[in-house]
Design a protein around this nucleic acid. Structure first.
Lengths: 296, 296
DNA sequence: CTGCATCCATACGTTTGAGGCATAGAAGCT
DNA sequence: AGCTTCTATGCCTCAAACGTATGGATGCAG
């Protein structure tokens, strides 16, 4: 009679993809493991949820009927956890500001400073997340507001674009390109292995990698990584190059690393974002501070 | 971010009893295990749910806020599973009739016979449950209708009393009481260890054991058991005596067992019951068959 | 019609975690 | 101060969830 929300997530994923293999990939579990969990769920509820006919998978009537309940339970739980976490932070007079890597650069720091002078009783906690994690964190109640890097999935969130940053490329100091030019073109990176991550959605990875390239080609993929530090370790070692922001060129300038401006790709857009639903007045105040500063 | 509904049940139980020890007893888990699960839940949601102050346990604000969501999720899941199981049975043209031990005796069998002649396309499946399990089975969608033995918790169920049965007592054939009388009084059983179960609610156990006795005394408790067969094994071995129905005296008459009518206790009331909510017309038809037969 | 590719199920070994028992530690009562 | 009551911690056991390797069925192409 008991279920784990994990199993419900598995079920919804299979129902959405109508494929165990693809759902397993999305869920970062093996296909056999996923099959077992679905079998277990089916025996628990006493009915087959999917019809597997060799080549294709489709929902049974029971599968269709259970699906809304599974979604409802997942939403209910996510929202409940988000509210508890958010209230707990509010109770402790905390304002948790999520960001990735350099976040919004100088704007973020100025906003925190200004906010703190107006609300000295509040502790503002900058919270660093892995690639794509800042938007996720808002949905999970792990941050109250965040500087999110676009493009990303903004469902469930309010967002205002407050800054843009030119994109730069990082490479090992010994890299030939570093010696050759002060600036580079995206086409100069055609044969360079590029860093990527499975933490962020595909859309995000493609945008950063400029995939497809202006000439229609696909980037050469290098090692995977979860966050800036890991990424730059790889790059300094010479395994790959990576794209980043102008701020990153300043913040993460170590001797083994060389940064160059990329002249011909669009800049990063950065938004301040916060979750839908009842909004803590402090969150709104912080967002307004950011927007005001951005307008200067 | 994931939870098991089991953990939510634990949480709700602790919140209702405001005691880990008592909740653990109700849930049939050890107190340390329960404590650990609650700790785990608390770290998952990022807030303490209970304040433990040595002598007493009370809910925190976060604990109060999470409670409705936990209850909602549990109800949602129970209902979803019940509906899937019920629809699946309907799809297979099954009508599952729950009962305990001898159920409603001859009435149950006659009702199934009559129903089958009117609905030959339907397979009627008598389903036997452990003590107190027939009402539970209706709530869990494991039966479509059932003969429930009163008193029991009827929440979520419709019920009509359709029969009563005098109560008899079973003892080992070698038992002194068996030789002495044709009938016995409840007071004759004062010093006899009586069978009991933890499957059914306390109310049920007390009613069967006639606790307290007319003179205010408490029965002497014998071995525990889950169902008729286990109970009668104990009784035949001479470990205890047990109370049962007149039907049981006929159905379960083996040589090592002697049954005697108990003259001075109220008879068992038996109801036909079915779950709240959308009701399959076949269920209603069966219930009406039972009620009609009972009226004869 | 045969070989190949695709996709889900099964087998098996490994690891995580939920449970029980014993016991420590804290709080209130006598 | 000692006793009782209640929750937390340490340690062990066992079930189950996961991954890798592989089997088996289906559909497509040559």
């Amino acid at each position: 009679m008991d279920v784990d929300t994990r199993v419900l997530r598995y079920y919804v994923a299979v129902a959405e993809h109508l494929s165990f293999t693809r759902a397993a990939q999305e869920l970062f579990v093996s296909q056999p493991s996923l099959s077992r969990q679905i079998q277990r769920l089916e025996s628990e509820v006493g009915a087959a949820l999917f019809v597997r006919t060799g080549r294709q998978v489709r929902l049974t009537a029971a599968g269709e009927n259970l699906l809304p309940a599974a979604r409802r339970i997942l939403d209910d739980w996510r929202q409940a956890v988000r509210e508890v976490r958010t209230s707990e932070a509010a109770r402790k007079q905390l304002l948790r500001i999520g960001f990735v890597a350099t976040g919004a650069g100088p704007l973020g720091r100025r906003a925190r400073t200004v906010f703190t002078t107006h609300h000295p009783e509040i502790t503002v906690e900058p919270k660093r997340f892995d690639w794509g994690g800042e938007a996720q964190a808002l949905r999970q109640g792990l941050a109250d507001a965040a500087f999110v890097w676009l493009p990303t999935d903004l469902s469930g969130l309010h967002a205002h674009v407050v800054a843009t940053e030119p994109r730069w490329v990082a490479m090992a100091a010994t890299h030939p390109l570093a010696a050759a030019h002060d600036t580079v073109s995206i086409m100069d990176l055609r044969d360079e292995p590029l860093m990527w991550t499975r933490k962020a959605p595909q859309e995000w990875v493609d945008w950063w990698a400029v995939n497809p390239r202006p000439d229609g080609s696909t980037p050469l993929w290098g090692p995977e990584n979860d966050n800036v530090e890991e990424m730059l370790e790889h790059v300094a070692t010479g395994n790959a190059v990576c794209l980043g922001t102008k701020s990153m060129a300043g913040y993460y300038a170590h001797p083994e690393l060389t940064w160059r401006r990329v002249t011909d790709i669009e800049p990063l857009r950065i938004a301040v974002a916060w979750p839908h639903g009842r909004t803590n007045p402090l969150v709104r105040a912080f967002v307004e501070t950011v927007i005001d500063l951005a307008a200067l």
